[in-house]
Amino acid sequence: MTSPAATPFRHRHLLGIDDLSPDEISALLDLSDEYVDLNRRPEKKLSRLRGRTQINLFFETSTRTKTSFELAGKRLGADVINMSVEGSAIKKGETLIDTAMTLNAMQPDVMVIRHSDSGAADLLSQKVNGSVINAGDGSHAHPTQALLDALTIRRRLGHLQGLTVAICGDILHSRVARSNIQLFGKMGALVRVVAPPTLLPAAVGRLGVEVHHDMVSGLKNADIVMMLRLQSERMKGAFVPSIREYFRYYGLDRDKLAHAKPDALIMHPGPMNRGVEIDTEVADDINRSVIREQVEMGVAVRMACLDALVHQQLEQPAEAAAR
């Protein structure tokens, strides 16, 4: 089998969705599809990143994203090292830049960074020689999450163009929301944000989305209902009066979901707060909820991103196709 002609991917880093064109997004998703197939086989290991070093630099706790990146790198044959804040010198007063420069001296090909400050991945990318993948920076961006969400939807519904995507909950603090707003906007979907005004950034209307403050109008005829996690420290009177009140007006349950299209998909970037932003019955509905699938897509999307950045092109992995 012959590989289709490779599409150049001229990005050194993946910091956000805004640098990507719709064609590049589609090509990344195509490549991800290949990796989904690969990941479902018993023998999952490739050698496309053999000899390459990937450092996962996590300044914020994360289970699924870190594991997902680690698996992605290992399945492509890279040497993967995980660094989390507990074991790093940051706590001894070393700055992000110092840590980055130190690790850079060890010649990693890819650094995957998660940090609680918006812009941390941008800052890191200015100081290192290899590629930087943003695995979530503050409230700014989480591009691989947006890509895996898009892949999940595309595989279920066949396309993204023309869909109505309702993103609900804590938009203000959410990097997932910002990256998804950009990605779905670029791919021709209609994006709605649904939240109380206290959980929306000031100029959210300028991002090309419809703004809704109630779930009934926000979910009306939606194809996709994407719920965001509400951080517990943001409840208790600060942004919303109580969990009880939040769930009543913004938690996803059967009644509210009834306003969306009958076959609307339910998504959540995880980890879920059952009974806060989403009802257990809805979250576990195997016909509607694609939350587990999102996790599976995550590994494939991260493999595609690693592959594309390291090789500076998007092509079907020949080894996989040959099997």
Partner: peptide, 15 residues
């Protein structure tokens, strides 16, 4: 400043 740039960058805004 609390505005479009802060919203895009995910930075806290000062009205």
């Amino acid at each position: 400043n609390d505005g479009e740039t802060a919203t895009r960058l995910g930075l806290g805004g000062i009205p």
